[in-house]
């Protein structure tokens, strides 16, 4: 689905007269391979380059160096812009700033309209997409009347209506309350399972990483760790170095281990920790 080879993205800082002041290497040699249907999480602290990476995947930005293929399309080629944007949909952080229309269903239809889909077909796509995120009840609502989680689900539907192969969530849960976070994540998980859509979840919340098949940890524009969530979570020190934190349950597991309690390594969820403790008893 996505293949990145050594991609570099440089951001040129200019002063007020437009002279080059400096060059920031936001992405510094990223290589990765994502298979179709995978659920990928990319974590990193603020400013680690993860959003820039996401924007490269959607061809909102293009790599300064290296090569990037999305769904078999070379992102270097201008011609591929619209195809890439159609096959990798993007959901952004602020729910208010990505809804274009004043009515939910019209917003979901915005993508297909831009793609030149025939009118009848658009309505079908809109209905399917709203059903898939369980927002059909709200089809004629104004987005201003929805909760944060509902708005993000509308945004996901807007992307779905373009029939993408991959959905990128660029910190789409950061501004939501726990309820909205859960709604959004469950929706994404279901899409990944049922529709086999590749999900790239960009986040800074370690609890969300649990659901992923594979995790990439980013720091200073580089991928510093990669592997399954279990593998990532075993290395607390390395995560700390990337300014990240373990979920509470795993912190407790580590604390217990320090006290000499023999708790199995490679735990992931609170339930697993509970089972591990019960076994010792």
């Amino acid at each position: 689905m996505i293949k990145a080879e050594n991609i570099v993205y440089e951001y040129i800082r200019r002063d007020e007269e437009g002279n080059v002041e400096g060059i920031d290497r936001v992405l510094d040699g990223i290589s990765l391979d994502v298979q179709t249907g995978e659920f990928i999480a990319v974590i990193g602290h603020n400013g680690s380059g993860k959003s820039t990476f996401a924007r490269n995947l959607n061809r909102l930005l293009t790599p300064t160096e290296g090569s990037l293929w999305i769904d078999g399309l070379n992102s270097d080629d201008m011609e591929n812009t619209w195809k890439i944007r159609q096959s990798t949909g993007m959901v952004f952080q602020n729910p208010d700033n990505q809804i274009i229309s004043s009515v939910v269903e019209e917003d979901v239809g915005f993508g297909p309209e831009n793609m030149g889909v025939p009118t009848d077909d658009i309505w079908k796509r809109v209905e399917d997409a709203l059903n898939a995120v369980d927002m059909i009840k709200y089809r004629s609502y104004s987005p201003n009347k929805l909760s944060g989680g509902q708005k993000q689900r509308v945004a996901i539907a807007g992307v779905l209506a373009m029939h993408p192969k991959c959905i990128i969530l660029d910190e789409a849960t950061a501004m939501l309350d726990p309820q909205g976070r859960l709604e959004t994540l469950q929706t994404v998980k279901a899409l990944n399972k049922m529709e086999k859509i590749t999900i790239i979840l960009i986040t800074q919340d370690m609890e969300e990483v649990i659901y992923a098949d594979k995790v990439f940890v980013m720091d200073h524009g580089k991928i510093t760790m990669s592997g399954t969530p279990r593998e990532i979570f075993t290395n607390e020190e390395a995560l700390k170095e990337c300014q990240l934190d373990l979920p509470q349950a795993l912190k407790l597991a580590n604390e217990l281990r320090k006290e000499g309690i023999d708790i199995t390594e490679g735990l992931l969820t609170a339930e697993e920790l509970v089972d591990a403790i019960c076994q010792l008893y």
Partner: peptide, 22 residues
Amino acid sequence: DLALAMESRCYQGGEGRTKMRI
């Protein structure tokens, strides 16, 4: 933000665009 969101949803002006409501 909005410009980015519109671009990522393939907005490219009025040309070649269909309408949901005729």
